[in-house]
Nucleic acid binder design. Sequence first.
DNA 1: GTCTATATAGTGATAGAC
DNA 2: GTCTATCACTATATAGAC
Lengths: 210, 210
Amino acid sequence: MVNESMVNESMEQRIREVAQELFFRQGYAATSTTQIAREVGCTQALVHYYYRTKENLFRQIYLEQVEAALNVIARSLANEQSFEDFLRSAISTYFDTLMQNPRLPYFVLEELVSNPERRRYLRENFVKKPAYACLYMQLEARVRHEQQAGRMARVETFDIMMSVASLTVFTFISLPMYRDLLAQTDEQVRQYILHRKEEVTRLVLQGLRP
Amino acid sequence: MVNESMVNESMEQRIREVAQELFFRQGYAATSTTQIAREVGCTQALVHYYYRTKENLFRQIYLEQVEAALNVIARSLANEQSFEDFLRSAISTYFDTLMQNPRLPYFVLEELVSNPERRRYLRENFVKKPAYACLYMQLEARVRHEQQAGRMARVETFDIMMSVASLTVFTFISLPMYRDLLAQTDEQVRQYILHRKEEVTRLVLQGLRP
DNA sequence: GTCTATATAGTGATAGAC
DNA sequence: GTCTATCACTATATAGAC
């Protein structure tokens, strides 16, 4: 757990990194500040000295991750290529990003599903932000443009988003089951993800054919 | 919480029903036997009298739910219609079943993701059962048959299953966010699910066109 | 900044009275 | 079958020494 790159960091930073790893693996409820301290190699009091409450420590980590994820999505939407190439590269980016961080979807989802407070917070801080509403409207405009040019079936923008999200996110959420139930090695899992990326891309694009 | 239909039931049964509701809403870790007892209106000792351990109580409920879900899937696979009609009715059945029980996907998934022991148990009790392997092989045979007749694109059976699962399950997992973040009423949510059912069916079938 | 010690509360589980 | 009482444990959080 304690690796070389950590030794010169501040305690505050080390606590945060260990906490993040444990929250990712186990979720909020199943992770205690005692366990965080044990894995850092300090006392439990120190965790509270820096972050006061467990909730506070978690919120900082959580919001940082959500923000990073939303930025990946936002960047993918600002794309000047043809709509088909834009979709290809967006899906590819989502898969590649999540391969680096396969636990992220479940981490974000778990708290969002089981904690209404987090949904409220997300709505106030992101959904209501004009920047995000603007991005959605730009996407919708592109979809309408494609449809009027007869290059795309009459599918709603929201449905495209939901289908892409479903197919991408579920791939990573179900990964522990794929690995365990089918007894796969790391390399087999990697190949499987790359395979799903291709198939998801194919399915989504085929679904938009007129 | 306590409704009329419960008054004449045995305590054992009432405990089980209340426990199921709480486990569904909050998950295993966040639900205590004390809370179960409080909502039943009995003492915490009684919960342990009937079920001995919290883990034991949970396992009974969990396995019953998983088994019921797998039976819905198994029944949908025994279908004599054309492959396209079979897929239509399977997806329709999954959506209709989950509309009655929208929390089921997250309930099953949460434990499978966060508890390796449950995955092991599932593998031993279901994945290894010849009955399920047999169902999968029958499905694969039908897919191959369609493909050789030139009526279906060369898509792997496993990919079809994963895509259907992704699009169906994610619809229900993301429901709390859809409702809260977009501030929807119950009726709007119901319409949304029915709409997704149609769109998922369309997408999957279009994805199988040669 | 980091520690020890502790307050306070909640947990799962069991023993024993009725 | 249902209760009261209690055990051993763990949790979060804080006070105060160094």
